[in-house]
Amino acid sequence: MFDIHYHLIPNIDDGPDTLEYAQAMVKISYDQGVRTIVATPHMNHPAEFRGNVELERDIEKEFETLRTHIQEAYPEMELYLGAEIYLSKQDLNQLDQVNIRTMNNTRYILVEFSRDFTSLELKQALNELILLGYRPILAHAEVYKCFTNHMEDLLKLREQGILIQCSADNIVGRHQKPDKLRAVEMLKHGLVDIVASNGHNLSSNRPDLAKAYTYVAKKYGTEEAGRLFIENPDTMLKDGLIEQPSRVIHTSKPIHKSWFWIASLIVLALLTRCFT
């Protein structure tokens, strides 16, 4: 399997603080069948982290050190460098000044926004990135409240060519119930393109993929699981074009109030007739 959303570089953001801790995280991934990881440190994020990921030489140096240690312990594990880019509303007015790192030097970019963005704001922001030549991947799309009971808005993003990434823990985890409900609904409608761990540590944000893979394979088939955990991430790393099968959102239409009252009157009339 591939894990393309992974905060693994030590002492950079809110991921591990030592190489030993990072190696312990990789062991979890390796034991679960992951053989390719994309390290995606936070960039341009408003929160204050340990390191300064904005300095290209620093992140390159830290990544190469990490990759050397990991491949000594796990020769089969492939590591690539990417980033999770945070964009605020202000950033969208000055994108030329934002330091953007793509995924493995491809045209793909893993991007997140403030949780209070509306569907329209997300659509406009992601379209700006497309116009600049990027292929946006919306990170952990299930965390955005605007998609609650509005899966059709997520469908419209995919129709623009936006890739939808979902976090494994929000599919099978017990916490963050609203996020989980949205994640399950996204899978139900076939709106997910990539599942990744968003791993940060060994406790609250573990790099677990196996349970989510088993869930998807059991409920939607091994072909769908292979598409989300292997084929699409592999295509992304090669800068290929990821196919997004057409989807249709089936929603039940509410009963019109007039029909409700008509049905109620008919039932009342029948009951009255039975007792007279």
Rank of each mutant, 00 (worst) to 15 (best):
I242P: 05
I37N: 02
L271R: 06
D234Y: 13
H150Q: 15
D153W: 06
M186C: 12
S252D: 14
I109G: 08
F229I: 02
R57S: 12
H5F: 09
G161N: 10
R158A: 08
Q176A: 15
L131Y: 15
N52W: 01
T18P: 04
L95G: 07
N104G: 03
I242T: 13
I4K: 07
L122Q: 03
T118A: 05
A139K: 01
S246M: 10
R135K: 15
Y215A: 04
V26E: 04
S167N: 15
L270V: 15
N52Y: 05
L55R: 15
L270R: 11
G226C: 01
I171S: 02
N52R: 06
I249L: 13
N149V: 13
R273C: 09
A139V: 00
I137D: 02
V26Y: 02
I262K: 14
H5Q: 13
D239T: 08
N44D: 04
L81H: 10
I249E: 10
L228C: 07
T276R: 13
L237W: 03
I109W: 12
S119V: 09
P75N: 00
V172H: 06
T18Y: 07
F49A: 06
T222G: 00
A24V: 02
S197H: 03
D91H: 14
M186Y: 12
H256K: 14
F260I: 14
I137M: 06
G161D: 03
L270S: 11
L237G: 05
A24G: 04
E76Q: 08
N232Q: 03
D239R: 12
A83I: 05
L132N: 09
R57C: 11
L187P: 01
H189A: 11
Q23S: 11
G33W: 04
Q244H: 08
R67F: 07
Y30K: 01
E56W: 09
L163K: 06
S114G: 09
K218H: 10
K145S: 14
D208R: 11
S197Q: 00
P46K: 08
R174P: 00
L265N: 07
I4C: 05
P41M: 08
E20D: 15
L132G: 07
L92Q: 10
G240Q: 10
G199C: 00
K211I: 01
L131S: 13
V26R: 05
Y6M: 14
G161I: 07
H42W: 06
I85L: 13
I85C: 12
R35Y: 10
T36P: 00
S264D: 00
R273N: 07
F275H: 09
Y134Q: 03
G199M: 00
R247W: 02
L265Y: 06
L55P: 10
Q71S: 02
